[in-house]
Amino acid sequence: MTSKGTIDLVHLYPREMSIYGDLGNTRCLAQRIRRHGYDVRVHDHDPGATLPETPHLFMGGGGQDSGQSRVEDDLAVIADRLRDLVADGTPMIMICGMYQLFGNAFITVEGQELPGLGILDVTTRGNPTRMIGGIVLDTGLGEVVGFENHSGATVLGGGQSAFGTVRAGHGNNGTDRTEGAVTGHVIGSYLHGPILPANPRLADHLIARAAELATGRPFEPGDLDDAVADQARSRQVRRLLAA
């Protein structure tokens, strides 16, 4: 089969920021890209490395506070490049710790402030109590399910759009029913699980934009069978809403 094009997928800090199954998001994206008929090059971006010349899609995962501290210096180096890519419409999904670092700041329980990129207008403060468990959201892409495990409580800025509304679970802070944040083609979320295999429509939303950037043409989806993922998601929704 002739390839429809090649997509460059970047996983930011896979060693420091990839816990609770987040590597599964990169594997899901790569596999679905191939199943849609495109080629994919996966780039692991470690501290000190150089970003590929033409990245089309980014994934970043969660990590402990120590992991966030270890990537801070490199993130500052590539910050302007990331902001330019965001302005150009490059799709990115940032989970948990990387979601926090794409915000304005993360303030630890001890009061240490880690500055963020400011791509998402959110601010996060660490808490001694963790927010853990299954979660169901209403989003612009339909129902989304996952598993959250975070102590950071995130507050959206006045004009910042949430990724979704919490139907079951905690979300950004356990009080305002918001979860995650969306700016342009950038999505930040606390959902592990990992989120993309459980929600293939979300994965394809990111891939569609990446394919457009990579080829200069509209996305040409393949005929994928997501029945198993759909059944698993529906089962989790029923279980959590009935709890």
Rank of each mutant, 00 (worst) to 15 (best):
G48P: 01
S66K: 12
H11M: 06
P14N: 07
H56W: 07
D22Y: 11
D8W: 09
G216P: 14
P14Q: 06
A227M: 04
S234Y: 02
D230I: 05
A232S: 14
G133M: 08
N172F: 00
L101K: 13
V40I: 01
F147C: 07
R130I: 12
G171D: 02
G169W: 06
A203S: 09
T129V: 14
L196T: 07
G21R: 00
Q231C: 06
G37I: 08
F163T: 08
A208I: 10
H45Q: 14
V71T: 05
D65F: 08
P14S: 06
I19E: 11
S234H: 09
T183K: 15
G5C: 00
H185L: 11
K4T: 13
E110F: 08
N173S: 01
F106S: 01
D176K: 10
A162N: 06
G142E: 06
T183P: 03
T50S: 14
F219R: 04
T154Y: 01
A210D: 13
R34K: 15
S69Y: 15
G103R: 00
G118W: 06
R238T: 15
T175R: 09
Q112F: 04
A153Q: 00
E110Y: 04
A162H: 07
H170L: 12
E212L: 07
T50G: 03
S161A: 15
G62P: 12
P14W: 03
E179F: 06
D223Q: 14
V182L: 08
P218T: 15
L191A: 13
L82R: 04
D73K: 15
M131S: 04
E16C: 05
H56S: 11
R27N: 13
G37K: 09
V228K: 09
D8F: 04
A87N: 14
T178M: 08
D46Y: 15
G152N: 02
A87K: 11
V155Y: 03
P221M: 11
R83Y: 02
P52Y: 08
R81H: 08
E113C: 03
V42R: 06
R70L: 15
S66F: 11
P55M: 06
H192P: 01
P47T: 02
R125W: 02
V77T: 12
L141N: 08
R239S: 15
I132D: 04
Q236I: 12
G126A: 03
F102C: 02
I187G: 05
L141W: 09
E16N: 10
V109N: 12
G126W: 03
